[in-house]
Amino acid sequence: MLILTCPYCGVKAEETELSPGGEAHLKRIGPKGTAEEFEAYLFARKNIKGVHFERWRHAYGCNKWFLAARDTHTMQVYGTYKAQTAHATDEIVANARQARAEWVPDWPQASEAVVA
C-alpha cells in the first residue's frame, strides 16, 4: 500500500487516505477538437511500466488534487507536486533519471534540460 506525501499539506498519507485519478497532464479537448484528438483525450493512456505521472486527491485530508511521479514497476516515488504544474519538476526528473537512466521526459523543455 502506497504512501505519498501531499504537496499541499505535507502529510505523509497512506493510500487509504487518497483517491486515485488516473494519468496526469492530460490536455482537455473541447468541442473544437477533432474526432481523433477527442478519442485520444478520452481513451488513449500510456499505461507505462516505469516512470508514470498520475493524479491523486488527498480525499481524507486537505482535499487537494496533486500529482505523483511513481515507478509502476518498482513503486519508487520520484516525487509529488502540485496539480497546477505543467510538468514534473527538474528535481523529480533527476530522481527518475537516476533510477532509470534510459528514461527521457516526453515534454520538450525537460528533454532539453536533460540533454543540456
Binding site: C9, V11, A13, T16, E17, Y60, G61, C62
Partner: peptide, 10 residues
C-alpha cells in the same frame, strides 16, 4: 491538526 479517517469515515 490531522485530517484523516477513523475506520471508514472522515
Amino acid at each position: 491538526l490531522r485530517r484523516s479517517r477513523a475506520a471508514q469515515t472522515a
